[in-house]
Design a binder for these strands. Sequence first.
DNA 1: CGGGTTCTTGACCGTTGAGTCAAGTCGCTC
DNA 2: GAGCGACTTGACTCAACGGTCAAGAACCCG
Lengths: 179, 179
Amino acid sequence: MREAGRLFSEQGYHPTSVADIVAALGVGKGVFYWYFPSKDELLIEILRSAQQDLRRKQRAAIGDEPDALRRIELGIRASLVWFHEHRASFNLFQFAASEERFAPVLRNNHEVAIADTARHIKEAIVEGRIADQDPHLLAEAVVGVTERLGRAFLLQRDDSVDQVADATVAFCLRGLSGE
Amino acid sequence: MREAGRLFSEQGYHPTSVADIVAALGVGKGVFYWYFPSKDELLIEILRSAQQDLRRKQRAAIGDEPDALRRIELGIRASLVWFHEHRASFNLFQFAASEERFAPVLRNNHEVAIADTARHIKEAIVEGRIADQDPHLLAEAVVGVTERLGRAFLLQRDDSVDQVADATVAFCLRGLSGE
DNA sequence: CGGGTTCTTGACCGTTGAGTCAAGTCGCTC
DNA sequence: GAGCGACTTGACTCAACGGTCAAGAACCCG
């Protein structure tokens, strides 16, 4: 599954044939269809398990931090570390989002992530620490910046995670802050 | 070309066959290969012309505005209006970025866009109006937020462009601003 | 051992889809 | 209206791919 993820990520899902995958693994084709009902299902499996892992890491990083803004910061940092360690999965997310067949798998999880972030933001708004705007929109912005900077500076270039994380957190927290 | 763009965007590039395209147009297959050397080349053509159009609109919106921050704001607004009017192309960008074959076409243009934004940002930094950080990174963040909020609120939901634009500009300018 | 279950193989099948091409049609010029 | 080049058609080719399956190997339990 790891190998298949790597291949999908490197060459794209469609251009990677089942024959390629089993050849890379040095096994017969039957073995593939013994473990997975179809190529599509394999991708969905990969996506699901990657998402699950990411969310686990985020939760672990946030722990029971009481400060809402700090929770957002920890979430951003955990995400960037994960992106850095799982480039292949990160790439796949982008493809999956562009195909109607796979988008629903992501959408669900994405909505939960946004809702979570929005909760922290709402709390901070109530505390009067950030601008009183639609928390949903702000959450989308924060997640968007994180993913974008992750892609640009951790995957395409190869900057230090901490440096990128510092800058991302700074930008987001300023972006959130009321006047 | 517009019809092909619509189909690619709706069903995905790979699942849309040349037969689908010519059927939707009510013409023979030969006509397709008279005008385009291959299916891949058609997508590249679509991408190029969409990018060109977007950049033209951005330039037109910015005009010769002397204020650097205002130039950034105008760029963001023009982009969001364009995304709203060209959902299909916007979708295609996302797919193209995920396939090694097409990514280079986007990358080039993307780099120019980032460099442009970074120039405005650098100018504002010199004027002491925003935080002294890597302009390249800030540019990526601004473009990232714009695309993300465009996708989330103009394509998936269908909010008013002006409302989304106001919020995007507010978040970005705050994110840029020094302390 | 024997027999049953779990896994593995790779040749094979059916279909799909990109791209070709011989045979036109249309409209233009002389 | 003959001749020519620009365009159009859709049946056809051919390779590739997802998925199947009959034939085992490997392992386990009694």
